[in-house]
Design a protein around this nucleic acid. Sequence first.
RNA 1: GGGGGGAUACCAGAGCGGUCAAAUGGGACGGACUGUAAAUCCGUUGCUUCGGCUACGAAGGUUCGAAUCCUUCUCCCCCCA
Length: 427
Amino acid sequence: MNFVEELRWRGMLHDIMPGTEELLNKGMASGYIGFDPTADSLHVGHLTQIMTLIHFQRAGHKPYALVGGATGMVGDPSGKSAERNLLSEDVLQHNLESVKTQLQKFLDFNTGANSAQMVNNYDWFKNFTFLDFIRDVGKHITVNYMMAKDSVKKRLEGDTGMSFTEFTYQLVQGYDFYYLWKNNNCVLQMGGSDQWGNIVTGTEFIRRKDGGEAFALTTQLIKKADGTKFGKTESGAVWLDPARTTPYQFYQFWLNTTDVDAKAYIRIFTLFERDVIEALEAEHEVAPHTRTLQKALAKDITIRVHSEADYEKAIKSSEFLFGSTGIEFLNELNDEEVLGLFGGVPNFTVSKSELADGITAADLLAGKTAVFPSKTEAKKTIQGGGVSINRNKIGTADDVYNTSHLINSKFLVAQKGKKNYFLIIAE
RNA sequence: GGGGGGAUACCAGAGCGGUCAAAUGGGACGGACUGUAAAUCCGUUGCUUCGGCUACGAAGGUUCGAAUCCUUCUCCCCCCA
C-alpha cells in the first residue's frame, strides 16, 4: 500500500513537500503527528489526524503520536484570531493522560519494527532552559521568517495582537521535529493543513542547524459542504470520550451527515477499500432515503471509537426513537430495559411525590429538569409546537403533568424538536 | 510622550435624550415539506411568580427620563514621536 496514494484517493491530502512520496516508497520511514492536550478528550476533529497515522502504519511505516505536554503550555496561534488563556499545569497533566489513553486505542503498539510509539514533548523540554533555547534554537530562525507565517501574519494584521509566547510556538514545535528527527530518525511530520507553517519551520530548522533533510505532509481541513465547521452539534463538540458524548449521540452525529458530506467522510473516516466504498455509493444513489452511506459510516466509526456492543445499543435506541415503534412498546419492557434503551439520551430525575401533585410543562422542563435553560425558552418552544412528552405535542406551557402520565409508573419521554430526546425518571 | 477613533445582545453592526429589551444581517433553535438528507418557506432568539426585573465596557453624575449628555477608570485600534 502506498501511503500518499492512499491519502490522495481518499481526498485527504492537502499539501506535500517534494520528495516525500519518493522517500516513503523506498521503505519503512518514521513520521509523527502532534496532539496538544487542550481538553481531556479528543473530538471528531482529531479523527482525521488519527486516521492519517493509521494509514501511515498500515502502509508499513512507523507512526509516532506526540502529545504536547510542552506545546500545550504555550498555545498554538494557528487558526486562532485571539490570544488564548493558558491552562494550569494540573489541568494540562490530566488532559495529557486522557488524550494518551484515547490515542492508544487506534494504533498498534506491538507489531514489530513499525510499532506505534507515544512520545511527550515535555520530556525534552522540561530541562531545556530559556537561555539554551534562544541560543540553540532561536538563533537559527530569523524573526523575519517567523513573521511571514500565516498564523503570525494574520494576528499582526488583525486587531487583537499576539503575545511573545504564542509567537514562539512555531519554534517549540519546530524543535520537536528536530528532536524526533535527531533521536528517533523521524523524517516526516504530518498534520492538518493549518499546521503547514509550523511543520515547515521544523524542516527548515533541521536544515539550518544540522543540514538535515526532513519532510512535511498535511491533510485537508474537514469542512461541511455548506462551509460550516465540522464536528459541532447543538450541544457543542462531538467528543470521543463516551462520558462527554454518549455512543448513541456519537452514532447519531454520523448518521445525520448530509449526502454530500457522507461521500467525503466515508473515504476519510473509514478504512473501507475503494471498491467497497464505490459499491456503497452506488447503492446510496439508487435509494438515497435508506441512507446507506450514513449508516455504514456511523457504524464503522462508532465501532472503532467505542465498541461493537456500544454500536448495537446505539442502533437499538435509534430504531426505537426514530422508528415506527409506538411509545407503548415501553410498557413491555422492565425498568432496566428502558434505561438501557435510553442509555445514551440525557436523563433527569424528578421527585415522584412532587409529580403526584402535578407539575406544569414549563416547570417540568425548565425547573425540575434542564431540558430547557429557562422557562421562557420552554414556553416559546412549546408555543412553536416543538416539544412533546411521550410523543404527544404539548399544547401549552401550562399543561399539567402528573403520575398518571408516567410510563411503567416511572418514566416520561420528552422531546425537544424531532431529534432531541430526554428521559425523565420519577422516583 | 502627543493626537484621533472605539467598546452595544452568540457574532457583525445600527441607534446618539423619551415611542429601545434595542433596527438589520449572519448564526443558532423550533415548525412545515422530506429520507433523522439538501433546498425552500414560516416562527423564535434577556429573565420572570407576567406585576415587573436586569441589561448597551466599569463606577459615579446631570435630568422627570440616559445605550444616547458630563466626569473618572479599564481595555482595544489608528496616526505622529
